[in-house]
């Protein structure tokens, strides 16, 4: 199987990284600002949503997931799905009267 070993590597230019980095800083700014406003239960939802958006950019560009094969994406979906199963099913217990 050694014929895949020197597969074309994708070079991402420095400029793109700086662009992504600025975006991430902007999102950080937004999330800090929003946390100052009292939105009740929505605060945490918005904070986590912004964190997910930031992660999406880190994952796709810094970690090159965008340029990887489909199997890597399947893997990551499996791992995240498993985590959310573990998290969600624990709440079968906690979100109902014990």
């Amino acid at each position: 199987m050694s014929d895949h070993q020197h597969e074309e590597s994708h070079v991402i230019e420095y400029g793109n990284y700086i662009f992504i980095w600025l975006g991430l800083l902007a999102f950080t700014g937004i999330t800090v600002t929003v946390s100052g406003i009292n939105l009740g239960n929505w605060t945490i939802v918005i904070a986590l949503f912004i964190a997910c958006v930031k992660s999406w950019y880190v994952l796709n560009y810094f970690m090159h997931m965008k340029y990887e094969d489909i199997i890597f994406k399947v893997f990551i979906a499996t791992a995240l799905f498993t985590f959310f199963i573990f998290l969600g099913f624990t709440f079968w217990d906690y979100s109902f009267t014990r």
């Binding site: 498993t82 199963i85 573990f86 099913f89 079968w92 217990d93 906690y94 979100s95 109902f96 009267t97 014990r98």
Partner: peptide, 22 residues
């Protein structure tokens, strides 16, 4: 197999909903 863990805990004091699901 990853969705059934709490069937070890039926008498531990979980919610009824969790018992039913698991």
């Amino acid at each position: 197999g990853s969705l059934v863990w709490a069937h070890h805990m039926f008498t531990a004091g979980m919610s009824d909903a969790a018992m039913f699901v698991f």
